[in-house]
Design a binder for these strands. Structure first.
Length: 502
RNA sequence: GAGGACGUAGCUCAGCCGGUAGAGCAGCUCACUUUUAAUGAGCGGGUCGUGGGUUCGAUCCCCACCGUCCUCACCA
């Protein structure tokens, strides 16, 4: 007895050949007149009555995701991006050719159908098919969806299957689109203009992160892929755009975690004549619009907790939360060093390559203490909280407070322990800007410094940038928060994975 | 970068003390004109991530590598 061909892909290829033998194009043609399944499901479902058909005629197209065969009666489920619906196909309702095609269908094939919409005896919304059009053959077996897709790697390497068989995935994609569109509408309504600025930068400024390097051959020029949108947008403020924003991809050559992907999407906006506090209100407005568009009320679940987005949100001073949590004053250098030692924070930065170590500057220690002690404290409440007035040394692009130049007018928005937004009253004094670009924080890795001399940017400021407020929002984290998603990989369609090696 | 866990059929997963592999679904064949994870009968399907080692014998123990996940570090 010859070996039976059992490989599922081969079986499917064989069915493709059989379709061709029947004169069917296995890759299909234009198919007009379909209605999304989600809309069909809203029609009035009348019970089927052969003698007196009253149901509405509908046409749909999509993927076969289930197939219950009977002798002369088949039930299938058809899936499209708007939903699923049952198909009922009876032998005496379709042509002989269509019946042969039906018996060659595999899970994952794409078909178009027309027929009467109604409900079966048990009340299931159904299309009783009288026209079956084959549209696309699937040559690979699809995962059986009954128990869902469990393996993260499989889901990420086959995102297209994840979209079909893990309903939450498609839903999150759709919600992300809604959220981003809502942000654009909200800003456009307030007179903001959206722009696109370069991705390739000669100087990777605007944030503290390691950039990706690249090279332009014709100019023989080393370049970086942008790590932030900030500096080009502020040049546009100089140029007279008063309310400007960009939603764009930025790239940071750093670790990957449930909250970090090497490329992610940022919103940055700048508002001439605004400041830190006008930006707080704007931020509440943007978040509020996004929360509203989901239509789930003002209180959304995130993991174990409930987040109440009703504004205005609490505003707490960095210095206050520092004093309360760490127990010493922000500017108490001795106290801070003691607290750092007590909390096992190293007072020196060791450069293992150079074999040297440098004592860390006061503000670096302050912020390490803040991250170790204050951020967990902030995470306990889960509720949106603005933390503002940061140590100036940590903020080279931020305007100093007039009454205390050791503080800068910066806030970060914390929700559920995540940093969701970062905003400044923008530094528009070119003399101070040049000085902060020159000042390297001592005890901080040079790669990580936000202070990178950018003469061209300083020159722009020297021509006069209006006082302004600026805001950055991590769109991926915002979508995570609003869609109750705990890993950034599930709000990014194709997060970075190592390529498979055969 | 450090530590931990995992990798078995198309998918989801079992596999005990080391004795050469199992289930459900999917696939194939047959039956079935109202199913809902349809049902009934039967049949196929595996380089147990890769490469070494120990052993009479390795999916199982050891080492290395590859990949994924988690925690930490990094991300001021």
């Amino acid at each position: 007895m010859p070996a039976v061909e059992t490989d599922q892909a081969s079986v499917r290829l064989d069915k493709l050949r059989q379709l061709e033998a029947l004169g069917i194009d296995p890759w299909g043609q234009r198919f007009d007149g379909r209605t999304p399944i989600g809309e069909i499901r809203l029609l009035e479902p009348l019970p089927f009555d052969d003698a007196n058909p009253q149901g509405q005629r509908v046409t749909a197209a999509g993927r076969i995701v289930r197939h219950r065969t009977g002798g002369k009666l088949h039930f299938l489920e058809l899936w499209d991006q708007s939903g699923r619906i049952q198909l009922m196909i009876r032998v005496n309702k379709v042509s002989e050719l269509e019946w042969k095609v039906l018996n060659l269908l595999d899970l994952g094939d794409i078909v178009g159908v027309s027929g009467e919409f109604g409900k079966t005896k048990v009340g299931e919304l159904t299309i009783q098919v009288d026209q079956l059009t084959f549209l696309t053959k699937s040559l690979e077996p699809h995962p059986k969806d009954v128990f869902g897709l469990g393996d993260m790697e499989y889901r990420l390497r086959h995102r297209y299957l994840d979209m079909i068989y893990t309903p939450e995935t498609l839903k999150r994609i759709q919600q992300r689109v809604k959220i981003v569109r809502t942000i654009r509408n909200h800003l456009d309504d307030q007179g903001y203009v959206e722009v696109e600025t370069p991705t390739l930068h000669a100087i990777a400024g605007g944030a503290a992160a390691r950039p990706f390097d690249t090279h332009h051959n014709a100019l023989d020029l080393d370049l970086f892929v942008r790590i932030a949108l900030e500096l080009p947008l502020k040049r546009l403020l100089v140029g007279g755009l008063e309310k400007v924003y960009e939603i764009g991809r930025v790239f940071r050559n750093e670790g990957i975690s449930p909250r970090h992907n090497p490329e992610f999407t940022m919103l940055e906006l700048y508002c001439a004549y605004g400041d830190l506090f006008s930006i707080m209100e704007l931020t509440e407005g943007v978040f509020g619009a996004c929360v509203d568009v989901l239509g789930l009320g003002k209180i959304l679940p995130y993991g174990e907790c409930q987040i109440d987005f009703t504004g205005p949100w609490p505003r707490v001073l960095y210095a206050d939360i520092f004093r309360q949590t760490v127990g010493v004053d922000l500017f108490d250098e001795v106290g801070v060093r003691t607290a750092a030692t007590d909390n096992k924070i190293h007072l020196e930065l060791r450069d293992t390559k150079a074999g040297t170590s440098t004592p860390k500057q006061h503000e670096v220690l302050v912020h390490e203490l803040f991250e170790h002690l204050c951020e967990p404290e902030l995470a306990k409440s889960h509720q949106p909280t603005f933390v503002y007035d940061y140590p100036a040394a940590l903020c080279p692009l931020t305007k100093r407070k007039r009454e205390n130049p050791k503080l800068a007018e910066r806030f970060e928005l914390y929700i559920a322990g995540m940093e969701l937004a970062n905003a400044y009253t923008e530094l528009n004094d070119p003399i101070t800007q040049e000085a902060t670009f020159r000042e390297q924080l001592t005890g901080m890795n040079a790669d990580d410094s936000m202070a990178k001399m950018d003469d061209d940017f300083v020159r722009a400021l020297r021509h006069g940038m209006p006082p302004a407020g600026g805001l950055g929002i991590g769109i991926d984290r915002l979508v995570m928060l609003l869609t109750n998603t705990t890993t950034i990989r599930d709000v990014i369609l194709f997060p970075l994975l190592r390529p498979e090696t055969k």
